[in-house]
Design a protein around this nucleic acid. Structure first.
Lengths: 345, 345
DNA sequence: AATTAGCACTCGATAGCCTTGAGTGCTAAA
DNA sequence: TTTAGCACTCAAGGCTATCGAGTGCTAATT
């Protein structure tokens, strides 16, 4: 496939491996020596010339070794790379950490981000699980100071929304509790549409709250992902490609600019090269300038239709893809299990 | 004070201003020209020699200009600097942003971090408001899948804790609701001690939950601060002192390593140089190696005894202290007002 | 036909050397 | 006490020479 001989693809993978390891252009002789190849450097040279012509390799300077191009990485990831499985002991350790966290939903995302960052030695991002459809589970109304009320809204799936509401006139906790009870009896299990079309008579206070509840549920539904938890940003700073002034900044900025990040998280599902559920976005793909030096390995987790989230890793394009993909896949399935085991329905 | 003449202190402040601006060693002639001083460079030179002898300035190389030392910055911050107030228009814009966020408690900390980062052009950190004492306000028990129960615990002050609990046997939502009601009647407004010494008879299920509630409240109380929200990490990467390989990493790592960060947040209240409520930690103060290149400007906000949080800025030691202190102070008072206006009690 | 040895060539990186100039400390005059 | 004057220091920048890893091409070898 792709007009490449088996040997050329093999050599491409060797060059990528070596470049990932050393971060320096890889020469023909170097490859032969390093991997004890049973051919001469001239042979390698010829094939490398072909790979360069085809756009998979590139020479930084005319007299230096070869470096993989974006296309080279892409070919490698989609056709050549094989995942390097995590050692069993590591898998067990991680599973155990999550088991101990099973009680603390908020802790999951933080733990996932932390584990991803450590294992991949890159920056990680994890969004909390988020239901695709907002369905009412439970409401609690709590009197705060003055005419303020704290509304705590629990959705099917376990998501908790909280919001302050300022009323026109003060009310008692009893009135609030009664309104909450009323809602809980009326709406539990129903989605926005259901609730909108319901015309059970409500008193003025309740009508106010009903509007707030619907508002909140709608904004929850339209949100693609909840908070993004980041970790390991400093890992990226250790990479040599980001020692040039401004490069590190450009790369990490992607993670701090929420609009851009959200766009990438939502679009990437379509645009990128998939590896059985794990998405790999290599170097901006000509679309995102800010990503020109980095790659992102992403996966969704959870149960489609119910609650899903996204998790992934951002690192230099010069990244150990086999290993990273394997880590992301493992954590994705682990988190899916967590979500499924404890989902509120 | 401090054996320094008025002029020497004045010159120190000029050198710091100029160094903060240019990031380059400041020479005697440069100071005279830049600020149109009515004295000769030789005079400045003499005073700068004195300041150097006293340890407030330093020469990177024997033939270059002067750079402030940690002690120099400290003297400057504690005796010389005057705050540069934010323009009224900026203050109003910020106040308005917070006003629009008034309903969304979780949004406060994020907004505060974002504003801090933008205004100070450095990295910012904000912890959510956290009550010093855990007092029970409300509990909600929600059946999840299998024998799992989602416990939602609201504390006085508005903090919401959520946790999954696995029971030995399945129970109905009715049983859960009844237990929750019981707790709400029994414990509202009471603290841990109160609750521990209460011996109202409870059924087995309720005893289990009571233990979980107390556990959770205790761990909330012992937590010094909630989640730390970070923003603007990439701002720091633009600073020239962090272009040296590894320096940026060392500086930002402080923010990613939670144990270290927590230690600093808690200890700093005592150890550092205060500016009327705003704490300034300059260059690790010989204690924290990781901070040797950076300064942190911190303030607590909220109401002591009720709920408090911490917010601040981390930037290069070469930082516009007057401006930064003023920003931190402004946001601290703004957040304090927010907390006081909407506190749940 | 594919592989390999041989070779001339390219060009970034490193080292050495020189010049430049901003900044210094000191001394003597104002 | 301040300032003018001056000799001195030393990093930074420019120039040149050398080095060597790596290349592409051609001709010989398998």
């Amino acid at each position: 496939m792709n007009d490449l001989t088996e040997r050329q693809r093999f050599l491409l993978s060797l060059v990528i491996h070596e470049y990932v390891r050393s971060a320096m252009p890889v020469g023909s002789k170097h490859v032969v020596d390093e991997f004890n190849l049973d051919m001469s450097s001239a042979t390698v040279r010829n094939d490398m010339a072909v790979l360069t012509d085809m756009g998979y390799l590139r020479q930084p300077h005319l007299s230096a070794g070869r470096v993989p191009t974006e296309d080279g990485y892409r070919l490698f990831v989609s056709n050549i790379v094989q995942e390097t499985d995590l050692p069993d002991s590591t898998r067990r350790t991680i599973s155990h950490q999550f088991y101990q966290m099973r009680q603390d939903v908020e802790g999951w995302t933080r733990l996932a981000a932390s584990v991803l960052a450590h294992q991949s030695r890159a920056a990680s991002l994890v969004t909390a699980p988020h239901p695709e459809e907002s369905r009412f589970k439970h409401i609690e109304l709590i009197a705060a100071r003055g005419r303020q009320v704290l509304m705590v809204l629990v959705l099917m799936g376990g998501e908790i929304l909280q919001r302050f509401i300022t009323l026109d006139e003060p009310v008692t906790q009893e009135q609030l509790s009664s309104a909450a009870d009323h809602f809980n009896n009326l709406y539990t299990g129903r989605n926005i549409e259901d609730m909108s079309s319901d015309h059970t008579p409500l008193n003025t206070l309740e009508q106010d709250f009903r509007k707030s509840v619907l508002d909140e549920m709608e904004s929850a539904e339209s949100m693609i992902s909840g908070d993004v938890v980041l970790d390991g940003l400093t890992n990226v700073l250790a990479e040599p490609e980001f020692s040039a002034p401004g490069e590190a900044r450009r790369a990490l900025r992607v993670l701090e600019e929420k609009p851009l990040l959200n766009e990438i998280l939502s679009k990437t599902v379509l645009h990128s090269h998939s590896q059985g559920g794990v998405q790999v976005l290599i170097g901006g793909e000509g679309i995102y300038d800010a990503l020109s030096q980095v790659s992102i390995v992403l996966a969704r987790y959870g149960t489609p239709g119910l609650a899903t989230g996204t998790l992934g890793v951002l690192g230099p394009m010069r990244m150990p893809y086999g290993r990273t993909i394997s880590i992301v896949r493992f954590l994705s399935s682990l988190l899916s299990d967590m979500v499924n085991d404890t989902i509120v329905e």
